[in-house]
Design a protein around this nucleic acid. Structure first.
Lengths: 88, 88
DNA sequence: TAGATATTTAGACAACTATCTAAATTATAG
DNA sequence: CTATAATTTAGATAGTTGTCTAAATATCTA
């Protein structure tokens, strides 16, 4: 759980990644769709998505040619709870 | 607040810094006292303390030659609340 | 199967960061 | 005031990270 916390905070530390999460909060989206909100290349976005995936903050499922990404809210909840429990 | 979140997560992303916070949870401590728990040099520790200071996660007050560092719990609480509010 | 579309992987590179040693600053004690 | 102790600041360096271009992989459609 400590190790997970490490990865989670590292994932959340980047503004682009937090923006991805905000965007996905509205609805599930394909990579191309997410990309429209950014001024970076597809491989860079893919890199960020990978880090978010490793942290368990997002999941995806293939739909034809597209990969549809979704938020994994339970990890946020878990992280928030850990923060609270850890320091109170 | 978004900018603050940025700095906060960045501060929390480093394991050494989270360890400092854990140590300070037990009691307020001077820099030398904190250092005993680590295998890094004093300047490195000072660097980490500086980042934690900027994030508002710790505060300090001088006591003679020593600087006594303390946790600032309210920032944790705030961060946890922001996490919860933001993603639920 | 060939061509088009969506995404990832590989490899390179500049910027950032954690660490170190050495020097400077701040405060106490004699 | 000088020596000592505690901490920070400065400057250098190796490792990490975010970004890019180019190439590879996976899926669909004709």
């Amino acid at each position: 759980m400590i190790m997970t916390l490490n990865i989670t905070f590292q994932a959340l530390a980047d503004p682009s990644r937090r923006k991805i999460l905000e965007i996905l909060k509205k609805k599930d989206m394909s990579v191309s769709e997410i990309l429209k909100h950014f001024d970076i290349t597809m491989p860079s976005l893919s890199h960020h998505l990978n880090i978010l995936k490793q942290a368990g903050l997002v999941t995806f499922q293939r739909k034809g040619q597209e990969l549809i990404y979704s938020l994994n809210l339970s990890v946020f909840e878990q992280t928030a709870k850990t923060l609270i429990k850890f320091f109170k």
